[in-house]
């Protein structure tokens, strides 16, 4: 029945008052360009990992900016670092650095056992 999970009345609201900025702040302090995303999806479309999996780098970035860091740990692992996203980004966001920073911050939080 698991394919009908979506029918369960689980709230999918973005709880903005529970904003978890622990990763976002870390990234923004080190990569300001991350702020300028307009969610055009060019990165996800060209993504080598996204070609093979459900990896969606744009959505990861958007979740972070909405203060949600759930399931990020498994998702961000999928990136292959090939750099195509960075090469197509119309906003010149240094996406490879964003991924590196997210990975680093998650590793930090995991070692502190707070994630």
């Amino acid at each position: 029945m698991s394919q009908f999970d979506f029918l369960k009345p689980k709230s999918r609201q973005i709880e903005f008052e529970q904003f978890d900025d622990r990763i976002l702040t870390f990234v923004l302090e080190r990569e300001r360009s991350f702020l300028t995303c307009i969610s055009c999806g060019g990165c996800t479309a060209t993504c080598s990992a996204g070609n093979l999996t459900s990896f969606n780098i744009r959505k990861i970035g958007l979740s972070l900016r909405r203060g949600s860091i759930n399931d990020l740990s498994d998702e961000i692992q999928k990136c292959m670092f090939c750099g195509k996203c960075t090469l197509v980004c119309p906003r010149d966001i240094n996406i490879r650095n964003v991924v590196l920073l997210i990975k680093k911050r998650i590793a930090q939080l995991e070692s502190e056992k707070t994630l």
Binding site: S48, L52, M80, F81
Partner: peptide, 22 residues
């Protein structure tokens, strides 16, 4: 159509173990 990356960009970022998988 699709294939994993060669692994070199990961290596340049220092992720050797990850690159080995690819």
């Amino acid at each position: 159509v699709k294939a994993p990356c060669c692994g070199r960009p990961l290596m340049l970022a220092g992720q050797y173990e990850a690159a080995r998988k690819l």
